[in-house]
Write a protein that binds this DNA or RNA. Structure first.
Length: 482
DNA sequence: TGAAATGTTGGGGCG
DNA sequence: ACGCCCCAACATTTC
């Protein structure tokens, strides 16, 4: 009689290019596909609200795909170690296969599982597939991790990316003691802030593949010119699919390489897109070597940065009520759709840290809860990048001017008007700076500043100076005495 | 994957 | 014709 192997799904909700699945199904084993909702082990980083919404739909999709192949996805909730032991015992499974994760709590959990399951005679094996290159396989000549993106990415590109694996599973276990997905209450109620999200998103492996093909067929050619324009649909919008593992970076990579062979003139744009996959890799590698990144400054002198905690400022930023249209548009897009255009992410993040002097962790936490693509590695590294405390970070004095950024990347104010409809009637000239609009222009646009749309929460010039002064403080504190 | 301040240059208006 | 000033336009530096 053949043995049973648990395929423990985590952040890899797909069936294709899944090394753990291939390994599990080898040697004539029956595969028992299991997802565990574990809110205990991740500590502060249990899944945020938007991710849970996504997870619900992604699990529906995965369950349907497995069912179509004759299996049943088992759902269980609780401490993963306990559940795995239970399910092994109840089902007679003798091995557990999974894809590696790289969050500090997750790698600890993997080591622990290897020991405790091993003590019970159960084989625990973990596989790659979530990254192009495993952390540790891309190192400087000195043997250490890269701390700067460009040389890191150059080194990555010197290595082969393994081709994606085809789906392979011959027989599924028929053990079927599963929770009802609905009982997990992953979807929001009262209010249902995700009411229209299925109009924007198709979670699941099929949705991810469609998105990738659509992007490469129709969008990528204008990617180089237009990806910074938030009003234009010129980005891949793959981040959430990638985060949940519905598509692997190797699948993306292979398709990109093929695209460049077929249509060489798209090479520049495709390369730019691939470099974004590179930033994801970079973040994961950094998180692996510097596990404190999600909660403490990579550049240590930033530990003393004089942030000015202010709940009211934070709240206005979260709600998109700062009085700076491009910032408010971004924050409202995030709330309405679970995502925000990358260019605008940089602007709102810079605004929170530099104009409002709020700790980058406050922004990181908000994004963690509201983004469908919330990812510990990318989120932590990117917030530190903006704040200036991260690896290869933007220098602290690089302070975005929210008006200039708006005028540069949203010339016609289309994006602002979409997400901040109260400004819709304002002429282009003032749409990024309504406080400069003369009385009659405001009247014609039916706006009373301070009532229909807020006055700017801070004066740009003063806020910029305050941020530079704050930076000066840690520079001085960091100076070595002579 | 900035922005502002400061410096330089050169054309044109003007006395 | 000349010098002077103004100020774009661009370059450099500073934060």
């Amino acid at each position: 009689m053949s043995e049973t192997a648990i395929l423990w799904f985590r952040q890899d909700l797909r069936l294709n290019d899944l090394p753990a699945l291939q390994a599990a199904s080898r040697d004539d084993r029956k595969v028992l596909p299991l997802y565990i909702l574990d809110d205990e082990t991740p500590g502060d980083w249990s899944m945020g609200g938007a991710s849970r919404w996504w997870l619900h739909h992604s699990l529906c999709s995965l369950a349907a795909d497995i069912e179509a192949l004759g299996g049943q996805l088992i759902l269980r909730r609780g401490d993963a170690k306990k559940i795995l032991q239970e399910v092994c015992e109840a089902s007679g499974a003798t091995s557990v296969f999974c894809s590696r994760r790289y969050e500090p709590w997750a790698s600890e959990q993997e080591l622990l599982l290897h020991e405790t399951l091993g003590d019970h005679g159960i084989e625990f094996k973990r596989y790659g597939g979530t990254l192009l290159h495993e952390p540790g396989s891309v190192l400087t000549l000195g043997g250490g991790p890269f701390k700067v993106f460009t040389p890191f990415w150059r080194a990555c590109q010197k290595q082969e990316v393994a081709p994606p694996l085809p789906m392979q599973c011959d027989s599924w276990s028929n053990w079927s003691k599963s929770d009802e997905l609905a009982s997990w209450n992953l979807l929001p109620t009262s209010p249902d802030w995700a009411e229209y999200w299925l109009d924007h998103w198709t979670p699941g492996e099929n949705g991810a593949q469609e998105r990738l093909h659509g992007f490469l067929d129709e969008t990528v050619s204008s990617y180089a010119d237009q990806r910074d324009l938030p009003a234009v649909d010129a980005t891949s919008r793959l981040s959430a699919h990638l985060h949940h593992g519905e598509i692997s970076p190797r699948q993306i990579w292979a398709m990109c390489e093929q695209k460049k062979l077929e249509l060489p003139h798209t090479a520049t744009a495709v390369n730019k897109f691939q470099a974004e996959i590179g930033w994801r890799e970079f973040s994961y590698h950094l998180l692996h070597f510097f596990p404190a990144i999600p909660h403490s400054a990579f550049k240590e002198n930033f530990a003393e940065f004089p942030w000015q905690p202010d709940e009211e400022r934070l709240r206005r930023w979260q709600r998109g009520e700062t009085g700076y249209p491009i910032v408010d548009a971004g924050m409202r897009e995030l709330w309405a759709t679970g995502i925000m255009h990358n260019r605008v992410r940089m602007v709102v993040a810079s605004f929170l840290c530099k104009h409002l002097l709020q700790h980058w962790r406050k922004g990181e936490e908000w994004f963690w809860d509201t983004l469908v693509d919330a990812d510990l590695a990318s989120n932590g590294c990117s917030w530190q990048w903006v704040a200036g405390s991260g690896a290869d970070a933007a220098p602290y004095f690089r302070i975005f001017n929210p008006v200039t950024q708006g005028e540069k990347f949203d010339k016609q104010g289309e994006y602002v008007r979409r997400w901040v409809p109260e400004l819709a009637k304002l002429p282009n000239k003032y749409v990024h700076k309504p406080w400069e609009a003369p009385e009659d222009a405001l009247a014609q646009a039916e706006i009373k500043l301070g009532t229909d749309y807020p006055e700017p929460i801070v004066d740009h010039r003063e806020a910029r100076q305050a941020a530079l002064d704050a930076y000066q403080q840690i520079r001085l504190s960091n100076a070595t005495p002579t």
